[in-house]
């Protein structure tokens, strides 16, 4: 894979529950490129993201990704008893990049989404919006080369959207967003195409 390419989807066919859902789908995302795929309910947005992340098996087609990956799931799961800082520190150590300073990386992630004041708060006490910010912060942790954002705007207030926009603009990583049309994500990244069950998708 060329170092200039962050993501290659080659004739990828998505399956869910043993049935063909979408595809064949082809996509090339260059390093540092930002893009947005629109799709309605049931179009296969989350299935696509989970397949790229490797959570779901690739049945047909080929996927190549740059690593490390940062992923913002649509429905984040958190260890609610942990503090935000503790949670991010554990995630940092899980993927431990020894060239980076852990405390600095965690503080940067918290500051990027204005979570610094909540660093010592248990996740259970955070509102839905603040949890979404934490969800974004964990994806940015450890300088990923490719960021996959599944409906990242969910539950964010305008201030949160500004943080997200700024973070996307500042990052050197490639960013792929999937979200419904008219969800406000068009201002985060340019539209690459629309996911549709009916027709093959070549972007």
């Amino acid at each position: 894979m060329s170092t200039a390419t962050a993501l290659i989807l080659d004739n990828l066919v998505l399956h869910r529950g043993g049935k063909r859902l979408l595809g064949p789908l082809s996509l090339n995302l260059a390093a540092g490129q930002k893009g947005y795929l629109a799709g309605g309910n049931g179009a296969g947005k989350t299935t696509l993201m989970e397949t790229i992340c490797g959570f779901l098996p690739t049945v047909e087609g080929r996927i190549q990704t740059a690593t490390p990956l940062g992923y913002v799931p649509q429905e984040p799961l958190f260890p609610l008893h942990l503090h935000c800082q503790d949670y991010l520190t554990q995630l940092f150590h899980l993927g431990c990049n020894r060239s980076m300073n852990c405390t600095q990386a965690v503080q940067e992630a918290l500051h990027r989404f204005q979570l610094a004041a909540y660093g010592k708060h248990p996740i259970a006490r955070l509102s839905r919006g603040w949890r979404q910010r934490l969800n974004l912060a964990q994806a940015w942790l450890g300088n990923p080369q490719l960021l996959l954002l599944d409906e990242p705007q969910t539950a964010l207030d305008p201030e949160g959207m500004d943080c997200l926009q700024a973070a996307i603009q500042q990052t050197t990583a490639a960013v792929l967003i999937v979200a419904p049309e008219k969800s406000g994500c068009s201002k985060l990244a340019p539209l690459l195409g629309t996911l549709s069950v009916e027709a093959p998708c070549l972007i």
Partner: peptide, 22 residues
């Protein structure tokens, strides 16, 4: 079991690329 429900398996897949650390 709790860790599974807290999304750790996904985080491990994303971050622990060689799969033995966790």
């Amino acid at each position: 079991q709790q860790r599974t429900s807290q999304g750790w398996p996904h985080q491990e897949k994303l971050r622990d690329s060689r799969g033995y650390k966790a």
